[in-house]
């Protein structure tokens, strides 16, 4: 069947396809003509491998992600479950206050759960979250990694903070709600993570 492009991101194409009779999504990392082959090949293979590993582990610890059906390292393709939900980026600004607050807390809880298992998503933005049957799914672990470092966990949250500032700037309480959810569920010392976020903000240029 012909594959329909659902979304063309910066590094990958998201295609609607079928796999053993199911409707699936293929995430296909595209070669980038602007960078040399050596960098391109290495990035595509390592990111595909890492992403599949992190998705599988996230699911195991109870953070919703699409189910993986197949991984093709050579071509940089992950075949996964299709979620016919809404991107949080698209709906957050139009939700009611209470619902928005609840989702933001849920985002924080899920990030805490990932961090409890030393999983770093690497690109936590509201574009990378899908709400499907009232469940919050994380997608795109392409820049993720595993680490115990507090610093990296704080950077993970800082990325989301910047996304909120740029995309949902009229709702300044959103990120605080995320942090509330995070604090309640993070098993390490959440205060240390939050302090490190402050350090990162201060380290940023001209703060």
């Amino acid at each position: 069947m012909t594959k329909k492009i659902l979304y063309r991101g910066a590094e990958a194409e998201i295609l609607l396809s079928t796999y053993m009779g199911r409707t699936v999504v293929e995430k296909r990392r595209v070669q980038k003509a602007y960078r040399i082959k050596e960098i391109d090949r290495q990035l595509i293979a390592s990111r595909t491998r890492e992403e599949a590993k992190l998705m599988a582990e996230s699911r195991r610890i109870g953070v919703s992600v699409p189910l993986i059906y197949d991984v093709d390292l050579f071509n940089g393709i992950i075949t996964m479950e299709y979620l016919a939900g809404d991107r949080v980026k698209d709906i957050l600004n139009i939700l009611g206050k209470q619902k928005r607050k609840r989702i933001c807390q849920k985002i924080g809880e899920s990030i805490a759960r990932l961090h409890n298992h030393d999983i770093i998503h690497g690109d936590i933005t509201t574009s990378n979250m899908i709400l499907f049957y009232d469940r919050l799914y994380f997608i795109d672990f392409g820049l993720g990694c595993k680490t115990i470092e507090i610093e990296t966990k704080a950077v993970d949250l800082h990325v989301l903070m910047e996304a909120f500032e740029s995309t949902h700037s009229q709702y300044s309480s959103c990120f605080n709600n995320v942090l509330d959810g995070y604090k309640k569920n993070y098993r390490g010392d959440p205060v240390r993570v939050l302090h490190t976020i402050d350090d990162i903000i201060r380290r940023g240029r001209y703060r």
């Binding site: 063309r8 991101g9 910066a10 590094e11 980038k32 602007y34 960078r35 040399i36 960098i39 933005t125 574009s127």
Partner: peptide, 18 residues
Amino acid sequence: QETTFAMLTEVTERAMAH
């Protein structure tokens, strides 16, 4: 050059997509 510029180009593309 190849590495730093690829990083710069990639984040620029990500911002354009975003």
